[in-house]
Computed example of a mutant assay.
Amino acid sequence: MMTTFSRGRRTALAFGLAALMAVAATAGEARPGGGSSMGSRGSKTFSAPPPTATAPGAPAPMQRSMTQAGPQMGAPAAPQRRFGGGFFAGLLGAGLLGALVGGGFFGGLGGIASFLGLLLQIGLLVGVVMLVLRFFRRRQAEPAMAGAYNRSGPAAGPRPGGPLGGNPLGGNPLGGLAGLGGGAAAQARPAQRDEVGIGPQDFEAFERTLGQVQLAYGAEDIGTLRRLTTPEMASYFTEELRANTARGLVNKIADVKLQQGDLAESWREGPVDYATVAMRYTLRDALIERASGRVVETNPPEATEVWTFLRERGGPWVVSAIQQTR
């Protein structure tokens, strides 16, 4: 009897844990992206975007990406020059070896004078090596300092336009991208690296695409998702929607409104422009049972995520990655 009761309790516990895991899985898979970080950011896929006022912390690293992890693209690190290596080490080694076998630089160790002469030669050689190393380090430091000033030097002035005039998602403007205001908030905003020159029209496109992607996901409109995202992101969204269908659920999304957003960075890779944007937005987000219409899970009404957009030169912006904030 005790054995049967223990087995029954273990079975009930296993079913309870499975149910909890199923609820957690369904809750985690609400909204496009399923609460995970996925997609590609070109050569920056596995590099954390810079912090912004909207998302001051580093976003979660990519959990799913078709980009292969590898050495980050960029200028190779300058090789370190250590004393005892290269050309000067060869000279010093040759001198010491010659001294040991009786040659030396000026006659080897043929007595105390020769030994003292060898020490003097080594001292002079060390002095020459140090001078040469200082010269090379100074030459390397000058362009590095200039490059650092160019990257993070005088901050650009405020962007024209301020808060977006009109909310593409409906309702009243509630901040919008690049609409963080002035004063202390503007001074606290981290420096942005904008190589593309993102303007008000780009910010409006980002805001509009945010709402369109969310609503298309809630409507299970795969065609619209493919138009607004990269093939990689569209494949992830399609996979999530099919998983919901298999569980008899539908993720309904409505009333998407951007509350605040700002640019983290933008850059170019060949003919492709990239822009990573932090966005805080509100929405109504719930998982609903298809057969009965019963609400299975209600998700938080606000989310902060970091979205990356890309465009071919002259083409529209499409979503290439979504990263969750911690």
Rank of each mutant, 00 (worst) to 15 (best):
P200R: 04
A205S: 08
G86N: 02
M38A: 12
G162M: 03
G103F: 12
L91P: 03
G86K: 03
K257C: 03
L258I: 04
V256K: 05
A185F: 02
I112K: 11
A216K: 04
A24W: 07
P168H: 02
L164G: 00
E239S: 06
A77R: 13
L215H: 03
G70V: 01
L180C: 07
R31H: 10
V213C: 04
A243Q: 08
F135N: 03
G110Y: 10
V132G: 15
A291M: 14
G153T: 13
E269D: 09
G102K: 11
L109Y: 13
T276C: 08
P49I: 10
Q121P: 00
L215A: 09
E305L: 07
K257R: 14
Y274C: 09
L287R: 15
G315V: 09
L174M: 10
R326S: 10
P301W: 03
A27H: 10
G248H: 13
T304P: 03
R189K: 11
F46E: 13
L97I: 08
L287M: 14
L241W: 01
F87S: 05
P71V: 14
E204F: 15
G293L: 03
V196A: 10
A78V: 13
E289H: 14
R31I: 08
G165F: 11
L100I: 12
R313Y: 15
A78N: 04
V101Y: 12
A243F: 00
G93H: 15
S37E: 05
S47M: 09
L210W: 02
G314C: 14
A184H: 05
G95N: 14
E240H: 06
G162Y: 00
M66G: 13
V319W: 05
G127C: 03
R313T: 15
S6G: 05
G176S: 00
P301Q: 08
V23L: 15
Q214C: 06
A58N: 11
A286N: 10
A303G: 01
P61H: 06
G171F: 00
G117N: 12
A291Q: 15
G35L: 02
R290L: 15
T67W: 15
A219L: 03
F237S: 08
R280H: 06
P50L: 12
Q201K: 14
F15T: 12
L119M: 12
N251H: 08
G127S: 11
G110A: 13
A19P: 10
G261P: 00
N172H: 05
L118E: 10
L119S: 05
G270E: 01
G197V: 08
A291C: 09
R242H: 02
L215D: 02
Q140K: 07
T209H: 09
A156W: 04
G153C: 10
S6C: 06
I222D: 04
G42N: 05
Q187F: 07
R10A: 11
R208D: 09
M73F: 09
V256P: 01
L97G: 13
